Simulated scan of single mutants.
Amino acid sequence: MPEAMAQEPGSELIAEIHVPDAEHAGGFPPFDAATFESQIVWLVLSFIALYLLMSRVAMPRIASVLEERRDRIADDLDQAAQFKRQTDEAIEAYETALAEARAKAQGIAQETRDMLNAETEKQRVAIEARLAEKIADAEKKIAATKEAALQNVRAVSVEVADAIVTQLLGEADRAAAERAVDSEIA
Rank of each mutant, 00 (worst) to 15 (best):
M5H: 00
P9D: 11
P9V: 06
P9R: 04
A15G: 13
E16I: 09
I17F: 09
I17V: 13
V19H: 05
P20D: 15
D21A: 14
A22C: 03
A22F: 04
A25H: 06
A25K: 10
G26M: 12
G26V: 14
G26L: 15
G27C: 05
G27N: 05
G27F: 03
F28R: 10
F31G: 14
A33I: 08
A33V: 12
A34N: 10
F36M: 10
S38F: 05
I40K: 08
V41M: 07
V41W: 03
S46E: 02
F47D: 05
I48P: 00
I48R: 04
Y51G: 11
M54C: 11
V57N: 02
P60W: 01
P60D: 02
I62G: 00
A63I: 05
L66T: 04
E67A: 14
E67P: 00
E68P: 00
R70G: 08
D71G: 09
D71A: 15
R72Y: 04
I73R: 12
I73C: 05
A74K: 12
D75F: 05
L77I: 09
L77P: 00
D78C: 06
Q79A: 14
Q79H: 08
A81K: 14
I91E: 12
Y94A: 14
Y94M: 06
A97M: 11
L98Y: 04
L98F: 03
A99D: 11
A99R: 13
A99S: 13
R102A: 03
R102G: 00
A103Y: 01
A103E: 07
Q106H: 06
Q106E: 15
Q106K: 10
E111W: 02
R113Y: 07
R113Q: 06
L116F: 11
L116E: 15
N117V: 10
N117L: 14
A118M: 10
T120H: 03
E121K: 09
K122C: 02
Q123W: 02
R124I: 09
I127A: 15
E128M: 13
R130C: 01
R130S: 09
A132V: 06
E133F: 04
K134Y: 09
A136I: 01
A136R: 13
A138K: 07
A143Q: 11
A143D: 08
A148M: 09
Q151D: 12
N152K: 14
N152Q: 15
A155I: 07
V156K: 08
S157Q: 05
S157G: 07
V158G: 01
V158D: 03
V158L: 09
V158F: 01
E159Q: 12
V160S: 07
T166Q: 07
Q167D: 08
L168S: 09
L168W: 01
G170H: 02
A172C: 08
D173V: 13
D173S: 11
A176E: 15
A177V: 06
V181G: 04
V181H: 04
D182K: 08
D182N: 12
S183I: 11
I185C: 01
